[in-house]
């Protein structure tokens, strides 16, 4: 690959553009799938019956 002109930087620039487009595409997908709604509900989805909301869980899980 010669560096006779700045055209040779195009692969890098194109990679940046592809990254940018892929990020936008993922954002669009997440919007269509309802991932950007009801944020308060979504924040609680990591809690379970074994490790419920409202309980400090840095402890030995006794349910094992």
């Amino acid at each position: 690959m010669d560096v006779d002109s700045y055209i040779d930087l195009m692969p890098i620039i194109l990679l940046g553009v592809v990254f940018f487009i892929s990020a936008i595409a993922m954002l669009y997908w997440s919007s269509k799938r309802g991932q950007l709604r009801n944020f308060d509900d979504q924040a609680s989805t990591i809690f379970t019956e074994e490790e419920p909301e409202g309980e400090i869980s840095d402890s030995f899980p006794s349910k094992y």
Partner: peptide, 24 residues
């Protein structure tokens, strides 16, 4: 952080915003 404290993240909206800003 939310798991240990048993408290949901303060703002899920901000967490999503932070992710997409990093990605872009």
């Amino acid at each position: 952080i939310p798991k240990v404290l048993g408290r949901p993240i303060y703002s899920y909206y901000l967490s999503v915003l932070g992710f997409w800003a990093l990605a872009i």
